[in-house]
Amino acid sequence: MIMLAANFFWRGLPVDVVVPVGERPKKKALDWLTRFCAENRRLLVYQVADEWFAFGPPLFQTDIAERLGRGQPPWGH
């Protein structure tokens, strides 16, 4: 997977963006990354196949889902 560390900020927190090299990130790598993000107060947006997912507080997840619903990339304004 390719990781763009602190690609953007959401409410002052860094958001890392991960895209898979193949169809999806490896489960072991994604599990490690979500633990790392939780322990270090980082947020995560990642892609599996053609779908985007957000890891972080519910409000962050909702915000990302709304952006995607409007046809914007997760980091759009």
Rank of each mutant, 00 (worst) to 15 (best):
V19M: 10
F9H: 13
P57M: 10
T62R: 15
Q47F: 00
W32C: 00
D31W: 01
R11E: 14
E51H: 09
F36S: 11
V15R: 08
F8T: 10
A6H: 13
Y46P: 00
L30N: 03
V45A: 13
G56I: 07
L44W: 04
E23W: 02
F60E: 12
A54T: 13
H77K: 15
W10L: 02
P25Y: 01
A5S: 04
V48A: 10
E39M: 04
V45M: 07
M1Q: 10
P57C: 08
V17L: 08
L59V: 13
Y46G: 01
G12M: 05
R24D: 04
V15S: 03
Y46S: 02
Q61F: 00
L13T: 08
R41Q: 14
R67N: 03
R24H: 05
L30M: 14
F60N: 12
P14C: 04
M3R: 15
M1R: 11
R67V: 03
A38H: 08
A5V: 02
L44C: 03
P20S: 12
K28S: 10
V21F: 01
E51G: 00
G12K: 07
G56M: 09
Q61T: 11
P57W: 07
A65S: 14
F8E: 09
F9W: 11
D50N: 12
L13W: 03
L33W: 05
E39P: 00
A29M: 11
V15K: 11
A38V: 00
P73T: 14
V48Y: 07
R67T: 06
D16R: 03
A49W: 14
F60G: 10
V48M: 13
E66H: 10
D16Y: 00
W52S: 05
G22N: 09
G56F: 04
F53P: 01
L43V: 05
G22C: 03
A54D: 11
